[in-house]
């Protein structure tokens, strides 16, 4: 299923070609394929899915993810830019902006904002609740 129409795809391609600087990761947390190999005589149908579930849960906890679908935007192993749900409609440009900001490493912020952010000593959690339209 194609989510973006042709003109949107062209717009996105052009923007990313011009503005993405470094590699940026999109790490998606979703449901895993829990199918497993069953060896005749040594059936353990739940071993593989159990192992996968534990691995997924461990990684999700490290990244502060408690819901699916969710994803992280990062350059290396940062976990502080998260999106819970599908970034559809008016939220899609927000995702594009996040990708550009992370990729460049130089988000477009005023000097006053940067100066204030540099004074932060404790973590600040900003949750923004949105709808797709």
């Amino acid at each position: 299923m194609q989510i973006l129409n042709d003109s949107d795809r062209e717009f996105v391609r052009n923007r990313f070609e011009n503005e993405l600087v470094n590699e940026v990761n999109l790490i998606l947390f979703t449901q895993s394929d829990l199918g497993g190999l069953v060896v005749p005589g040594r059936e353990c149908e739940t071993c593989a899915p159990t192992e996968q579930l534990l691995k997924d849960a461990e990684e999700a906890a490290r990244c502060g993810i408690s819901r699916i679908p969710s994803f992280l935007v990062s350059r290396e192993d940062e976990t502080n830019i998260r999106y819970l749900g599908i970034p559809a409609g008016t939220e899609f440009p927000v995702l594009m902006e996040a990708l550009v900001n992370v990729s460049s490493g130089e988000p477009k912020l005023a000097e006053e904002t940067k100066a204030f952010l540099q004074t932060l000593t404790d973590e600040v959690l900003i949750k923004t609740f949105v709808t797709p339209n």
């Binding site: 502060g64 679908p69 935007v73 940062e78 502080n80 830019i81 998260r82 999106y83 819970l84 749900g85 599908i86 970034p87 559809a88 939220e91 927000v94 902006e97 996040a98 900001n101 992370v102 490493g105 988000p107 477009k108 912020l109 904002t113 940067k114 952010l117 540099q118 932060l120 000593t121 404790d122 973590e123 600040v124 959690l125 900003i126 949750k127 923004t128 609740f129 949105v130 709808t131 797709p132």
Partner: peptide, 19 residues
Amino acid sequence: HAMAAFTEKVVAEVIEVQE
């Protein structure tokens, strides 16, 4: 998100509330 891209002291989470 731009603030969070500037410093890891900011954690930015967008939540699609219909989901």
